[in-house]
Amino acid sequence: MRSKSIPVLALMSAAVLLLVATGAFAQPTLTSQEQLGKNLFFDTKLSLNENQSCATCHAPESGWTGPDEAINVDGAVYEGSIPGAFGDRKPPSAAYGGDSPILYYDGTKWVGGMFWDGRATGWTLGDPLAEQAKGPFLNPKEQAIPDAAALVAKVQASEEYADLFAQQCPGTDTAELYNCIGRAIAAYERSSEVSPFTSKYDYWLKGMAKLTAQEHLGRALFQGKAKCSACHIIKGKQPLFTDFTYDNLGIPKNPLNPATIADPSWADPGLGGFLESLKKPEINYMAEWGKHKVPTLRNVDLRPSERFVKAYGHNGYFKSLEEIVHFYNTRDVPGAGWPVPEVAQNVNTAEMGDLGLSPREEAAIVAFMKTLSDGYVLP
């Protein structure tokens, strides 16, 4: 028995080493700051009623966005720590946002910032991602902690990571400790655990995987006839599939959005609303009315199961990649039957609406986007 078991164990060890080499079992090593960020990201105690963490709305199994299928199918807006408190938009992905620049106007368009409306500008910390990470904790429609001091007290009371917090965030100034919390979460979101570049597409770029004929067609259409890469740009060795700008796609109002149910006349102003809050001239903010940040398409199809429903668009109106691609293709085609846009101003008609794609071409684009899911295991 012993002489037979040795080669078996050797084969098993070789197999494990192969899986590690291909990334199937590989686990990234987090820095102390990233580990603190991870602890903070998954801690449900960091909410008013200790029932909600960042991961409640940004879960890894669904591409770091909403993991509750029933919510995605419905209004797509997640309830906060306080029962009945809802935001206005579906959760964007928490991954691959670390390269978004500080919000600026380049003379023709706004670029950078975080959140759908850009309000985490980076103007204070020099890092939009860190500013975004601070926001939900004190938002009454999200984690609803009353103030920064209460948040810091909760973190310092943690049995799991209080010592790590003290090490990474020394001092007693509440504002600085609050900033340190944001920076730690941003570090985790930038880490190779959250933004690992392990999709089939990434391996194809390295010559380690082969795309199917349908996926190749989808890639060509994505960069050509379908005009997807005009905003979801493919650039460099690790493309992020976004240009960090803002756009009004003419998405219809989601009738199941709690904000719409409360006020049927409400329409999401997006970036324009944020700029109005800054007291920008009307001519400036109205030019951005209804525009929302172009999201990354990485992990756009990542889900816990094949039939799991994700929501797409800033308001979650669409429930599948097939549906939103068909919308891009046919929004302006007479008789297509799409409802009117939520916001009629500033709708992008140059890069979408009547693309002339066939059903085969739409399916190919969807197939290509499915290659952007992390966790691909090499055959």
Rank of each mutant, 00 (worst) to 15 (best):
P146T: 10
H58V: 09
S93R: 05
A85S: 13
D332Y: 10
L103S: 08
L297D: 00
A187P: 04
G272Y: 06
C57R: 07
L36S: 06
P339G: 11
S13D: 04
Y328E: 02
S62D: 05
G353H: 08
K370E: 13
D106G: 03
A267V: 14
T172A: 13
P295M: 01
K280P: 00
D127V: 09
C54K: 06
N49P: 07
L30C: 12
H232W: 04
T44P: 01
A162I: 09
A287E: 07
C169Q: 12
M1S: 12
L302Q: 11
A153R: 13
H314K: 03
K253P: 00
E351I: 13
A94F: 12
E288Q: 15
L321H: 06
P269S: 10
S229K: 07
S3Y: 14
F222M: 01
G316Y: 03
E362C: 06
Q143M: 15
G135M: 14
A149K: 14
P295C: 07
T172S: 14
G113I: 03
M12I: 15
C57K: 05
A130C: 08
K225T: 02
C228S: 01
T198I: 10
I145M: 09
P170Y: 15
F42V: 09
A10D: 09
W123E: 10
W116I: 07
G236V: 09
Q143L: 14
V155I: 15
D43F: 04
Y201T: 05
H232I: 01
I261R: 00
G63M: 07
Y96S: 09
T296E: 06
D301G: 12
I145R: 05
D374V: 08
S192D: 15
V340Y: 04
Y328I: 12
P92F: 00
P341E: 15
D247C: 02
Y376H: 14
N299T: 03
G80S: 09
A14H: 02
T31N: 11
S229E: 11
E361N: 01
G207R: 12
G290L: 07
Q143Y: 13
Y105R: 08
V325N: 03
L302H: 08
G122W: 00
F222S: 04
A336L: 06
M352P: 07
F368H: 09
P7L: 11
G118I: 05
T349W: 00
S265P: 01
R331D: 02
Y96A: 02
V155Q: 09
L275W: 05
Y285T: 03
R89V: 00
I251E: 04
A24P: 08
V20A: 12
A344N: 12
G113F: 04
S93M: 02
H216P: 00
A262T: 04
T296H: 10
G122V: 09
T174Y: 07
E342W: 13
E61K: 10
A363K: 14
T371R: 05
W266E: 08
A367H: 08
C57M: 07
I82Q: 00
A21N: 13
L221F: 06
A175V: 11
L321P: 02
W110D: 03
H292L: 09
V77Q: 03
A149S: 14
L217G: 02
G37Y: 00
A311P: 06
L221S: 07
P258C: 08
S229T: 05
S3C: 11
